[in-house]
Simulated scan of single mutants.
Amino acid sequence: MCILFVALEAHPEYPLIICANRDEFHHRPTEAAHFWPKQNRLLAGKDLEAGGTWLGVNQNGLIAGLTNIRDPELIQSDMKSRGELVLKALINDGIDESWLARYSPFYNPFNLLYGDEKALYCFDSRAKRLNQLTAGFHSISNGALDDIWPKMSRGTQAIQAHITNNSNPCIDSLLAIMKDGTQAPDADLPQTGVSLEWERHLSSIYIQHQEYGTRSTSIILKDKRGKVQFSEVRYDGKGRNLGRNDFSF
């Protein structure tokens, strides 16, 4: 996952809204969002290479999602798959902070978001810090929670404007925000250890590249009665729409 936007207690009818883009190599096999047969309380896409997921929700309304922290110097090839952390959080209705602090060194750097509208947390494995999100708007990309990266600021402002000006948030409008391919000026690019060319590619909310880019967008709306709407749209390396799934429970 590359970027997550969160609106927590920011809308009178929808206390939790999440907009997320998953960026990944296009050759990595993936299954679209579905209810998992062996864990039918779990709705998520599936990484068919390692067996985990990047974002999901369970039948109790708990949500979990993950972003990789981009720090090439810390990446090791023999680490466990970070996607299993999302599964652990969803299956167990959360994940213990002490467990994360103890076992996070077995994974490459990550941010793990989990919880619900009553208590939503983000664990930063590089800083070994658990933060509880406050009411309002937040963004998580490949650095720290609420870093001021151009795409994080751009997306947060657009989502905030839509949510505060609409009594019923429009999933199609939120999907359009998440397909913003605007790249940041070189002077505003973060320095995350990759080449300037890749910093440019990765500086947009929606990344289109034939090798690596945005594979899917997910929108999750949870209303104050506990109803969850989950929409996922998938893309190929040319930015073409490969299909959309909508769920409500």
Rank of each mutant, 00 (worst) to 15 (best):
M1S: 14
A7M: 02
L8E: 00
A10W: 01
E13G: 11
I17H: 05
A20C: 04
R22L: 10
D23L: 07
D23R: 04
D23I: 04
H27F: 15
E31P: 00
E31T: 06
F35G: 02
N40M: 08
L43N: 03
L43V: 01
D47F: 12
L48T: 06
E49K: 14
A50F: 09
G51Y: 09
W54M: 03
V57A: 04
N58K: 03
G65Q: 01
S77N: 13
M79L: 07
N92W: 08
D93H: 04
G94V: 05
D96E: 15
S98F: 10
A101T: 13
F106S: 14
Y107I: 06
P109G: 02
N111T: 02
D116P: 02
E117G: 07
E117F: 11
K118E: 14
A119S: 14
F123D: 05
R129N: 11
L130F: 08
N131T: 14
T134L: 07
S139R: 08
N142E: 07
G143E: 00
A144L: 04
D146L: 00
D146W: 01
I148R: 13
I148L: 12
W149Y: 11
M152T: 11
Q157S: 13
I159K: 01
Q160R: 14
N165Y: 00
I171Y: 11
I171V: 15
S173E: 15
L174P: 10
I177Q: 08
M178S: 08
Q183E: 10
P185K: 04
D188Q: 14
G193P: 03
V194Q: 00
L196H: 15
W198H: 06
H201Q: 13
I205V: 12
Y206S: 03
G213T: 05
S216D: 07
T217Y: 07
T217R: 04
I219W: 08
R225E: 13
S231F: 11
S231M: 11
E232K: 05
V233H: 05
G237L: 09
G239Y: 10
G243H: 10
F247N: 06
S248D: 10
